[in-house]
Design a protein around this nucleic acid. Structure first.
Lengths: 157, 157
DNA sequence: TTGTGTGGTTGCAATATTAAACCGTATGCC
DNA sequence: GGCATACGGTTTAATATTGCAACCACACAA
């Protein structure tokens, strides 16, 4: 009855969800990208049980999303910061944010807007472009089987 | 001990996760966006237990991501299709996919690539633009408190 | 009218989440 | 140094969710 792992799945969406697709991981990553680094900061901000936070931080470190560094204030504690792989999650956070901004039933309850730091103006919606520069919607795309170079090991369908 | 609900949260990321932030919902939505519509199709594709699939479909319908329609083949069964709100999740799926493409340890196990339907060429990476057209990274953005128009009801921080 | 496929529901065992108590190590303060 | 307290967890026990398998109702076919 173990929660089924998606790690070996051949779908890239499933593989991403396997890494940070649970209730708390993305919120921890969001907090980290807002500059929070300490165990206590995450706990206070998210209000989740400490044991859960501990296991989540541990697996996020294992998976290369976060890394631990010595505390910046000189104390003997450690802090958790995003790796490049963790920073790469930023567009996903933006996509989630923009979906809520567009479709949520109570947009008045959204506290913040994302702005361009230089100008202070709201950012535009994420755009998916073709190689020749056209804006693509879902209907303008398809999936193609990836050409296999050497030997594919475990991928199924 | 009920799983804490994020519905009333003021963070748009949390609000999105509250709607489809569990293990299976996004995969169901992915399947739906690939054209799968029937209970059995989802079940065979995802390999999840039928009771779980049933509850997920029900809540996704309740939350306006999917809607049920009479079966397209004339049989008396029903099918599940994405609403506009559900189609709006597409950029999130793209962002997840692209993260895996860029950071996964075994990219050779990824089966498909997303291509522009017209040309058959891979799509470009999602781009976040400022209003004056600059490409923005995480460090080029900040969050600003949303100006409150009328009375904010429940939002906290 | 008997059989089969589809679309579920029900019951039970295993696992995950939660809150709360506990604990060792650092700091802070005297 | 000595005591109190904060930090960063681990442990425990209750509850909720997940997963599997068996069951069931209805539609459709023969």
């Amino acid at each position: 009855m173990k929660r089924t792992s998606l790690a070996g799945d051949s779908c890239p969406v499933a593989r991403a969800l396997d890494v940070f697709g649970d209730w708390w991981s993305l919120l921890i990553i969001r907090d980290a990208s807002l500059g929070r680094r300490r165990f206590g900061e995450f706990q206070a901000s998210l209000g989740l049980a400490k044991n859960i936070l501990a296991t989540r931080l541990r697996t996020l470190v294992e998976r290369g999303i976060l890394k631990t560094v010595p505390a910046s204030d000189g104390s003997a504690y450690q802090e958790y910061v995003l790796t490049p792989k963790g920073h790469g999650i930023f567009p996903i956070l933006v996509a989630l944010r923009q979906w809520t901004e567009e479709f949520d039933e109570h947009p008045d309850e959204i506290a913040t807007i994302m702005v361009d730091r230089d100008r202070g103006k709201p950012v535009k919606k994420l755009a998916l472009l073709s190689q020749d520069g056209r804006v693509l919607g879902a209907a303008d795309t398809t999936l193609k089987l990836r050409p296999v170079r050497k030997v594919a090991k475990r991928a199924s369908a």
